[in-house]
Amino acid sequence: MAGTVRIEHLVTSGTFSLDGGTWEVDNNVWIVGDDDEAVVIDAAHDADAVLEALGDRRLSAIVCTHAHDDHVNAAPALSDATGAPVLLHPDDQVLWELAHPNRRPGGALADGDELKVAGIGLQVLHTPGHAPGAVCLYAPELGALFSGDTLFAGGPGATGRSYSDFGVIITSIRDRLLALPGETVVHTGHGEKTGIAAEAPHLAEWVARGW
């Protein structure tokens, strides 16, 4: 059961568009599960690549850490191919509608929810700031946090665009993420993974720099 659960990682490439600009980006897609069942965290850019990685496993959910288009642009196609619901925090509906104006998510995430996959729990932590409905997923049995774009190796996610707030993301990181065990591995939305113990000492520096 829990001993067979694994974390798999794909990198997919495409674009991120908001506030009239478009940028080339590489996104991390995380698959958590065992040989029979899995969840996908952030279906970015390439549904076919995610389907190939899943193989014949049952996909129980497509979890969106937030609704910036680079994190959700492959979610409807992946849902259509597998029947798995797309789960999103309702506070990010405004961003979802920018990416998918004619389609609604399949279910809502709320702070304190626990998603079950392959016998383990993924705890939903509402961590607004990068986006109003941003969430992180904490898997204590795996010692893992899936941070989306809330926390990266070296600092918080960007807050310079619409629907973001620097003070709010700092509060989210300080109160929700840095309170986790220091040995927790942080699997990020872009770039390299990090750890709570590696990032915690730098909170005051981030606040002083204002990013």
Rank of each mutant, 00 (worst) to 15 (best):
A134M: 10
H68A: 14
F152K: 01
A139D: 07
D80P: 13
H71Q: 13
G112E: 05
V94L: 00
V117R: 06
H66R: 10
D35I: 04
G107V: 06
W23C: 01
D35M: 02
G143P: 12
A84W: 03
S164K: 01
G133E: 00
K116V: 13
H66P: 08
L109E: 00
L59G: 09
P76R: 04
P105V: 08
T150R: 14
P90D: 00
S164Y: 11
S164M: 12
A74Q: 05
V117K: 05
A158P: 08
T159S: 04
P85E: 04
L51Q: 00
L88A: 03
V29L: 01
E141L: 08
S162D: 10
G154M: 01
T82C: 15
T150V: 15
H130G: 15
G157C: 07
C64T: 02
K116E: 14
K116P: 09
A38N: 07
D34M: 15
L87K: 13
F152M: 05
A74M: 04
A118F: 07
A38I: 11
P140Q: 08
L54E: 11
R104W: 12
N73H: 11
H71I: 08
A75K: 08
D111R: 10
P101F: 14
D113T: 01
V32G: 06
D36G: 12
E52C: 09
H71E: 15
E97C: 14
T65N: 12
L151Y: 10
W30S: 11
R161M: 14
P105N: 11
V39F: 00
E52G: 10
A74W: 01
L51Y: 04
A75E: 13
R161K: 10
P156H: 02
P85W: 03
L59W: 09
E114G: 10
A158V: 12
P90Y: 00
A38L: 06
F152D: 10
D113C: 08
V25F: 11
A61K: 06
T159G: 07
A38G: 14
G143K: 11
P105D: 09
A74G: 09
W30N: 09
D91Q: 02
G121S: 15
R161T: 12
G112A: 04
T127G: 02
D46L: 03
S162M: 15
V94M: 13
D56T: 15
K116G: 13
